[in-house]
Write a protein that binds this DNA or RNA. Sequence first.
DNA 1: TCCTTATATCGATGGATGTCAATTTTCTGT
DNA 2: ACAGAAAATTGACATCCATCGATATAAGGA
Lengths: 116, 116
Amino acid sequence: MSTMTLLPVIDAAACCAPLTRDAMTQSQAEDLAKSLKAIADPARLRLISIIAASEGQEACVCDLTEPLNIGQPTVSHHLRVLTDAGFVTRSKRGTWAYYKLVPGALDSIARLLVTA
Amino acid sequence: MSTMTLLPVIDAAACCAPLTRDAMTQSQAEDLAKSLKAIADPARLRLISIIAASEGQEACVCDLTEPLNIGQPTVSHHLRVLTDAGFVTRSKRGTWAYYKLVPGALDSIARLLVTA
DNA sequence: TCCTTATATCGATGGATGTCAATTTTCTGT
DNA sequence: ACAGAAAATTGACATCCATCGATATAAGGA
């Protein structure tokens, strides 16, 4: 049904100073927590890792299903979570779906965690 | 019972290159996921945030219970998760317990997320 | 020694989440 | 139009997790 239930990472990160500068509000904390939850999973971290190491930081689903030891529907599920969270984008070419890393998305999160 | 069920963040991060440099192994992904899960919660992010903004990056539990809108046992639970994950340390002085940010812990995680 | 305050632990519960098998959708060739 | 491949969706299930109330532990003061 609805894609995009989450605030894109970039937006979530654009607003505010590093975590350790000042106390966060509840909604800031909720936004960041959602982004972190999206990557706080072994399968999704490996997906990101493989995509990032690929040519043009883009990879076909067909190349993502085998290396992880999980079924195709589960891979599809994880890619959806990453897409909804704004870490990757999807583009379909022919029968194949390609997922590409959103430039700067991970860095936005990293910046928020860095000690001032 | 057992404190320290998790790999301290520092150790987990010391080993390896950024996420996006090369494909992660399953166990690397599991370790990083555990660290990320520990901070992927609004209450815990706010706890870290308040502690980090305090004098000496250290705060008493008594100052942490009120600002969050959750009960004292829940705060205690979250602090335990953060402690087990290696983001904070606990020291008891008199009746009070003080939690202190582990210097560099958040930065270790941030470094792993940064795009090469 | 009691009482009070501060913090941790225990047990239970409702909700979120990762995974799978089965099915559907979408696209390509023939 | 049909067959086949690639990927997404659905529904179910088991586990995990945040939260709470009640209780336990620990330390200080009267």
